[in-house]
């Protein structure tokens, strides 16, 4: 039997302890440490740790087969980890009650085809044990644009509609943590924009959101932080500002002497395409790097035609991280 999460035994000591706990900041939506999973001899996930705070949107990125969905399933107890620890909303995930306030949209979204959309929502509300009135349940359907189809059998829904229904299922029982696994894979551009708005709304209401998506643009727009997985391992993680903080400058140069080229290379990582040179700027750039570099290049006899500051996109950054990780075998 699951314990009642609100049950606190009597006594002054327990009361004092409860006050103490109430004063603490709320536990993160998800916290996991050292997750590991092997399928046979093939390691699927190796030593993955991550955290999603309340009101934070974290994107899970990585190529196919990186272990993103396996990590999500381990968080939800759908896949048993070989090692590691998971806490959901401050409770150990080994207790099913930890999932009481968790909404989940699986990558493989299928719902009982012989139930209507409204019945699927009612079933999930009952399974959660949350007393969500029917009117509010219908509001979840309105949110995903399925209000008019509430009474229709799910078996007749298109993939996009089933995914919208899945989103409503994830949101219906007043979740404090929402895990969305490829939530827009079957949606049209309008649906994707809806999902973006929904995620930002959840964030605004202090809900923790873990978003697994292939669409980097989508992640870039809504996520505060990203976690990049590659071949089951954590390849990089951090805030978007940190991951994208690195800037570059593109220069169109002619008459570049060996000394000028050495000066460019000394500034940062250098790429050359014809007369265009791209130099990565150091993270601690205090706005003197570019004017100093240009001054020195002119002094070395180079002719400067253009200087363009650029920002690295998340996509470039992701590809850079993944290519660096695969450097040994490519």
């Amino acid at each position: 039997m699951a314990a009642d999460p609100t049950a606190v035994s009597g006594g002054a000591a327990a009361g004092a302890a409860a006050d103490l706990i109430a004063d603490l900041p709320p536990a993160p939506g998800v916290w996991c440490s050292g997750l590991r999973k092997r399928y046979g001899r093939r390691p699927a996930v190796e030593d993955v740790s991550l955290e999603v705070g309340r009101g934070e949107v974290v994107g899970l990125l990585g190529p196919n087969g990186a272990g993103k969905t396996t990590v999500i399933k381990m968080l939800l107890g759908l896949v048993q980890p070989d090692a590691g620890e998971v806490m959901l909303l401050g409770r150990s995930a080994s207790d099913p009650a930890a999932r009481a306030r968790v909404g989940y949209l699986p990558e493989l979204f299928r719902y009982q085809p012989w139930l209507s959309a409204a019945e699927v929502l009612a079933l999930h509300v009952r399974l959660t044990g949350a007393g969500v009135p029917a009117r509010e349940q219908l509001e979840s359907l309105s949110l995903v644009g399925l209000r008019d189809r509430a009474g229709d059998r799910v078996g007749g829904f298109s993939k996009g509609m089933q995914q919208r229904l899945g989103l409503a299922v994830a949101l219906v029982a007043q979740p404090e943590l929402v895990i969305l696994d490829e939530p827009t894979s079957a949606l049209d551009p309008l649906g994707r924009a809806d999902v973006r708005d929904i995620v930002l709304d959840l964030k605004g209401r202090g809900v923790a959101v873990l978003l697994n998506s292939h669409l980097i643009g989508e992640v870039e727009r809504v996520c505060d932080r990203v976690v990049i997985l590659d071949r089951g391992r954590l390849a990089a993680s951090g805030s978007l500002a940190k991951l994208l903080g690195q800037r570059e400058v593109r220069l169109h140069l002619t008459d570049v002497s060996a000394a000028a080229q050495a000066r460019l290379a000394a500034t940062g990582e250098l790429e050359r395409a014809g007369d265009w040179f791209t130099v990565a700027l150091p993270a601690d750039d205090d706005a003197t790097t570019v004017p100093d570099l240009v001054g020195d290049l002119i002094a070395e006899g180079a002719r400067v035609h253009a200087v363009e500051p650029t920002r690295i996109s998340l996509e470039d950054r992701l590809l850079g991280i993944l290519r660096a990780g695969h450097g040994g075998d490519r």
Binding site: A2, K73, L76, G77, L78, P96, A97, A98, R99, A100, V102, Y104, L105, P106, L108, F109, R110, Y111, Q112, L123, H124, L127, T128, G129, G166, V169
Partner: peptide, 14 residues
């Protein structure tokens, strides 16, 4: 197999 169980078993149920 179909995935229907995923959403159900992710609920607070044993």
């Amino acid at each position: 197999e179909s995935g229907i169980a995923l959403a159900v078993l992710a609920r607070p149920v044993r």
